[in-house]
Amino acid sequence: MKTGSNAIFATFDPYPSYKGSAIHIEKVTELMASKFPKTLVVSLKKHTDKPLAPGLQHLEFEMEESNYLKRAQAYSAWLDDILEKEHQLEVGHFRDVWSGIPILKRPHITSIFEVNGLPSIELPSRYPYIGESTIEKIKVLEDECLHKCQLIICPSETIKKHLIKRKVLAEKIHVVSNGADIPAPLNKPVGLPDEYLVYFGALQPWQGVDVLLKAMQYLQDKPELKLVICSSHKPKFARPFIKLAEKLSVNDQILWKYQLHKDELHEVIQHAMCTVAPLTECSRNLEQGCSPLKIFESMACKTPIVASDLPVVREILAADKEAKLCRPGRPADLARCIRLLADYPDLRNELSKNAFAKIISNYTWDHINSTLSAIYDNIFKLVF
């Protein structure tokens, strides 16, 4: 089927979905639709029926395949078939190498690689038994995309530094941070504890949810303080963590929620004593970098933040002024920071007030989109 689109946004990710990345995809595709009235979005099969922005067409890759690499290769071939019919495309914005390879085969498409993560770094954390030879082959694909694409967008200086180490031209890398909208005040949901901290997002190893569960052991003298975990995954992905909580004897301190819609999630965040971003000290967070949406959403909800003291976090938040930062991978230190906020309400208020002021000044989606909009306005002048 030929769509007649003049721009394409491609992602090897389900969209729309409950993942934090879906918020970023929504903002970028809305902007693309405003610049290119016939924008085509291609993605994995959606997880939710949330409508897309007006002007967007959507094609979903629906193949069911449990093997990650087989699914990635099949998706790439599927996208290649689509592009064979779309000769009028001017711009191709892609978020991964599996989308990038077929787009970069068409030199008439001005290519933008949005680098949020690299599979050579992320896959060993998700699949510990993946072979080194496979990783080396993936690196070759990454290098092809990084060097052949005409522009790169990434959400943090940490990622930019990593790409420069891989001999990517600094001039073609544009740092465009993540952000958040400011939600309206919402009522506290029925059934939540009187006092709780919240973790929300995905459950990959680098997120540090296991560290947070271990930290709860050090807070057992505060039985009124509960932990609410809002997972963006289906319940089955929480099973290892539920078993760990039982082993640690903290399962009665934890309440699980799954795949909440945005307003439901904001209700939980707004009434939390604090949110926690216990990112681990691993290559995914240190070498590659990230830009945690959970931090921006917490800032926008005026909720105090406890986060791991990592360069990607310090790019956003000032320690002891806008957040409490703890040593990554140290449950006792994480518990110490949580205890400080539990015991000192004035400190909580000061941190959340300062963090909210920063997001208003720098990180609303209006600010972020103005930067991205300028890139798109000059896209044909900026290419290398």
Rank of each mutant, 00 (worst) to 15 (best):
residue 2 K to W: 04
residue 2 K to H: 10
residue 17 S to F: 04
residue 18 Y to H: 14
residue 20 G to Y: 02
residue 32 M to P: 03
residue 33 A to N: 06
residue 37 P to V: 03
residue 40 L to E: 05
residue 41 V to S: 07
residue 42 V to Q: 08
residue 44 L to W: 07
residue 47 H to K: 13
residue 53 A to H: 14
residue 53 A to G: 07
residue 56 L to R: 03
residue 58 H to L: 13
residue 59 L to G: 01
residue 62 E to N: 14
residue 62 E to C: 13
residue 63 M to K: 15
residue 67 N to M: 10
residue 70 K to P: 00
residue 72 A to K: 10
residue 79 L to G: 04
residue 80 D to G: 12
residue 84 E to Q: 15
residue 87 H to A: 13
residue 103 I to H: 05
residue 103 I to G: 07
residue 105 K to P: 00
residue 106 R to K: 14
residue 107 P to W: 02
residue 107 P to T: 08
residue 108 H to S: 10
residue 109 I to L: 09
residue 112 I to K: 07
residue 122 E to F: 08
residue 123 L to S: 08
residue 123 L to D: 08
residue 126 R to D: 09
residue 127 Y to I: 15
residue 133 S to Q: 14
residue 136 E to T: 12
residue 140 V to T: 11
residue 142 E to L: 01
residue 143 D to Q: 14
residue 149 C to A: 14
residue 155 P to C: 02
residue 156 S to G: 05
residue 159 I to W: 01
residue 159 I to T: 12
residue 168 V to K: 04
residue 169 L to G: 13
residue 169 L to Y: 13
residue 171 E to A: 13
residue 172 K to Q: 03
residue 175 V to E: 07
residue 178 N to P: 01
residue 179 G to H: 02
residue 179 G to L: 00
residue 179 G to Q: 02
residue 182 I to Y: 12
residue 185 P to D: 10
residue 186 L to P: 06
residue 186 L to Q: 14
residue 190 V to G: 08
residue 192 L to P: 06
residue 193 P to I: 05
residue 193 P to G: 11
residue 211 V to I: 15
residue 216 M to C: 12
residue 218 Y to H: 15
residue 221 D to F: 10
residue 224 E to V: 00
residue 226 K to Q: 12
residue 228 V to M: 10
residue 229 I to H: 06
residue 231 S to E: 02
residue 238 A to P: 02
residue 253 Q to F: 11
residue 258 Y to L: 11
residue 258 Y to C: 08
residue 259 Q to F: 03
residue 260 L to Y: 06
residue 260 L to T: 02
residue 264 E to I: 11
residue 265 L to P: 05
residue 266 H to C: 08
residue 267 E to I: 06
residue 268 V to W: 05
residue 271 H to V: 06
residue 275 T to E: 06
residue 275 T to S: 13
residue 276 V to G: 03
residue 278 P to Q: 09
residue 278 P to L: 07
residue 278 P to C: 10
residue 279 L to F: 14
residue 280 T to K: 12
residue 286 L to T: 12
residue 288 Q to F: 00
residue 292 P to N: 07
residue 293 L to R: 03
residue 295 I to T: 07
residue 304 P to H: 08
residue 306 V to A: 02
residue 313 V to H: 05
residue 316 I to L: 09
residue 318 A to M: 00
residue 319 A to L: 05
residue 320 D to F: 01
residue 322 E to Y: 09
residue 327 R to A: 11
residue 333 D to H: 15
residue 333 D to C: 11
residue 334 L to M: 13
residue 340 L to I: 12
residue 342 A to R: 11
residue 348 R to C: 13
residue 349 N to H: 14
residue 349 N to W: 10
residue 356 F to A: 10
residue 356 F to R: 11
residue 363 Y to N: 01
residue 364 T to C: 08
residue 367 H to Y: 08
residue 369 N to A: 07
residue 375 I to M: 09
residue 378 N to Y: 03
residue 379 I to C: 02
residue 383 V to T: 13
residue 384 F to L: 10
residue 384 F to M: 08
